[in-house]
Simulated scan of single mutants.
Amino acid sequence: MVDLDFDVVSLPDADHPEVGDTAPDFTRPLVNDEYWEDRSLDSLLDDGPVLLVFTTMNGAFPATYTWNELRERDWETDHDVSVVGVTISDPYDTTETIRDREIDYPIFSDPQNGVAEAYGVVHDLDGMTGVTEPRPSVFLLDAERTVEYAWTAGEWPDFPPYDDVADALDDA
């Protein structure tokens, strides 16, 4: 048995968009390592499919691990897809995190957690009522915002099933 320094917490079921549903559009600051600007999800979809990756706040180990894994897999090179994140962290922190951790992808900054709310992937942060963050989630969206693949964490911490995501990208 593995001795963890933290408790694994089961999360309630999420009411998120499923395969075949149309995902919500939104506009938030899209951050990279140099600047940010308000962008809509639809504007990114003009260039093709998007793999939308919700992570915990910047600096939390699940977010760091997820971005490291995505960098290693480099899906944008082998697939016609843009990988884009969503975090509750503010644009200033997100810019620094992208620089410090050499994240290769832009990340939407959503400090009010409204995007996660629209996607049905909100949970109370550490059980604190009124303090929320997105639960780890992945949505593969085609150019019309149709969900081609959906995964949402069932416990904290939980990480995307990267091989399943790769299979969905291969099938898209």
Rank of each mutant, 00 (worst) to 15 (best):
E37K: 12
R145D: 05
P91F: 04
T97G: 13
G20C: 07
M128K: 11
F54P: 03
N32C: 09
V147E: 11
D158G: 13
S137K: 02
D21R: 01
L141G: 05
D164A: 15
E117T: 09
R145M: 03
E117Q: 14
N32R: 05
D33L: 04
M57K: 14
G130W: 13
D124E: 14
T87I: 08
I98L: 12
L30E: 07
A153H: 00
T77N: 14
A118M: 11
P111H: 08
E133Y: 04
A14H: 06
W156I: 09
R101M: 13
V138E: 07
L41M: 04
P111N: 06
V115T: 07
S137D: 09
R71H: 07
E148R: 15
I107H: 10
T55W: 07
D33W: 10
D38C: 06
T95K: 08
E102N: 04
E155K: 12
N113H: 12
I98R: 01
P160Q: 00
D110N: 14
E133F: 09
G59Q: 03
N32V: 06
D171T: 07
V165N: 02
P62F: 10
T152G: 12
D158T: 02
R73K: 14
L41S: 01
A23C: 01
D13V: 13
G59K: 01
H79Y: 15
D104T: 03
A143E: 15
T132R: 13
P161F: 01
R39F: 10
A118K: 07
N58L: 02
T56Q: 15
S82Q: 08
V9K: 02
L70M: 00
L169I: 01
D7P: 01
P62H: 09
G48F: 04
D38K: 06
N68W: 00
A153K: 05
S89G: 12
Y149I: 00
P106Y: 13
P12C: 05
G154W: 04
D90G: 14
F139P: 01
V2D: 12
A23G: 08
P91E: 03
Y105R: 03
L141A: 11
A116I: 00
P157K: 02
E133R: 11
T132W: 13
S43A: 14
F139R: 01
E76D: 15
W67M: 05
A150L: 06
D171R: 11
A143C: 00
E144M: 07
E155H: 10
Y65A: 15
D100E: 15
M128D: 12
D33M: 03
